[in-house]
């Protein structure tokens, strides 16, 4: 159902660095689950609209009026790497 290569590709998309045996276990477990799930693909769903919301409301909008922002200290307090009044990260450009 799902081979190592697919698992590794999906893990890359999801930014998960799986260990080798995790990859194998994942391939096995996900395949089992997907086998079970496959069933729904047999249903005849011709012309059935998809449901992404059960609430059928539309246009829930807010007026363009400012609300208070958080103090910088408060948000940086949680930061793993406060840097120049901002959030430090390894530069995406670094080799």
């Amino acid at each position: 159902m799902l081979d190592r290569e697919q698992v590794l590709h999906v893990a890359r998309l999801a930014r998960l660095e799986l260990t080798d045996d995790e990859v194998d276990r994942m391939a096995d477990e996900l395949s089992k689950v997907l086998d079970h799930i496959e069933a729904i693909r047999e249903l005849d769903l011709e012309g059935v609209p998809p449901t992404s919301h059960v609430v059928d409301v539309t246009n829930v909008l807010r007026a363009d009026e400012p609300t208070p922002s958080l103090p910088r200290e408060a948000i940086l307090a949680a930061a793993p790497e406060p840097l120049n009044d901002g959030f430090g990260v390894p530069s995406p450009g670094a080799a």
Binding site: L83, G86, F87, G88, V89, P90, S91
Partner: peptide, 21 residues
């Protein structure tokens, strides 16, 4: 906005960046 440390201030050659939201 992603800001880059280092003389150039550009992404290449910089090894640390910081985010301003």
């Amino acid at each position: 906005k992603l800001n880059h440390l280092g003389k150039s201030g550009r992404i290449h050659g910089s090894d640390r960046s910081w985010v301003d939201f």
